[in-house]
């Protein structure tokens, strides 16, 4: 029996998280609580009930089978009290339109590797591979490490998408199995980092230095969120990193997208997140030219 973990999903033909054609495994659980999180369903460490309002037929079949009074009716509409759910799973079996589902599933490393191997030819021909993302994959450390290790045994390129907030020894431990780190740089200001993400950035910076000094291949990924970190000061900080860490493999900016909000709604967590408009292409280009002005070359849109 191989190591098990909780994943949100596995995305095949993933082309935005690392080079080439990849399979990205999204793990559940994250120590941060970024206000702009685009995968809010991956923050909680456990399997969660998910309710898609648009699909609901208001048939209320779920009410009678639920042992914990999660489902109730208000003004003819089906509503959900998420905090009461203890995952009996009974409502799922009676929901006629799949409005009720579970987010998160338990998988073994073997099962994941079996799926990963199915697209190996695509990785080889495109310079792609496997990306572990989340959530924060370092929180399910052994699981993540086993997947990466198995990938390397099968000569598959590996990428780890991390926020950097994990014990430093784990990064040193996992480094041999990671060909490329996608390393987040969310906010340069110490206090604001805490405000926006729930944690201070000292550990994140420390781990970054540690990986860099040990020769890890790193692409810095900077989410830019209008009204939060699209500031002169932050852009300046990004350019400082660019100048100081000359061996960085690249810098990508990730313009804010409000796709996360809809996913948050399904797990009853929308109140935890900001609601601003998705960045348009004009705005993204402005940011790129601003950063270019600071001397950063070859900046990419992630």
């Amino acid at each position: 029996m191989s190591e098990t973990g909780i994943i949100v999903d596995i995305q095949r033909f993933s082309i935005h998280d690392g080079p080439g054609i990849r399979t990205t495994v999204f793990l559940k659980g994250c120590p941060l609580n970024c206000k702009w999180c685009h995968n809010p369903e991956a923050i909680n460490y456990n399997i969660q009930l998910s309710f898609n309002r648009e699909k609901c037929l208001d048939c209320f079949k779920c009410i009678s089978v639920c042992p914990s009074s999660v489902h109730f009716e208000r003004a003819g509409k089906h509503e959900v009290n998420f905090s009461e759910c203890n995952l009996s799973g009974r409502c799922l079996t009676v929901c006629p339109n799949k409005a009720l589902t579970l987010t998160g599933k338990v998988r073994t490393v073997d099962k994941i590797i079996e799926l990963i191997l199915r697209d190996k030819d695509y990785y080889n021909n495109s310079g792609g591979g496997v990306t572990i993302s989340g959530g924060e994959p370092m929180t399910q450390f052994q699981f993540t490490k086993q997947i990466l290790k198995a990938c390397k045994e099968n000569e598959i390129h590996t990428t780890l998408d991390t926020c950097g907030h994990a014990p430093s020894d784990r990064y040193l431990d996992i480094m041999p199995y990671v060909d490329l780190f996608l390393y987040d740089f969310k906010e340069s200001d110490f206090q604001k980092h805490k405000e926006y993400t729930g944690v201070y950035n000292d550990l994140i910076q420390k781990n970054f230095n540690l990986l860099y000094d040990n020769g890890a291949k790193i692409i810095l990924r900077c989410p830019i969120v209008p009204g939060f970190n699209d500031t002169e000061k932050h852009f300046h900080a990004i350019s400082d990193i660019y100048r100081k860490f000359t061996k960085l493999h690249g810098i990508e900016i990730m313009p804010y997208h409000n796709i996360g909000l809809d996913k948050a709604r399904k797990i009853g967590a929308e109140q935890n997140f900001i609601s601003v408009d998705t960045t348009d292409k004009v705005k993204s280009r402005e940011w790129i030219s601003a950063l270019t002005k600071y001397g950063i070359k070859n900046i990419k849109l992630g």
């Binding site: 033909f13 082309i15 054609i21 021909n125 495109s126």
Partner: peptide, 20 residues
Amino acid sequence: ELFFERRDIIKSLLKTYFDK
């Protein structure tokens, strides 16, 4: 978008499909 902005991806996708 995929076809033009990621021509490299499309080419390797089709190549793999034809190889297989």
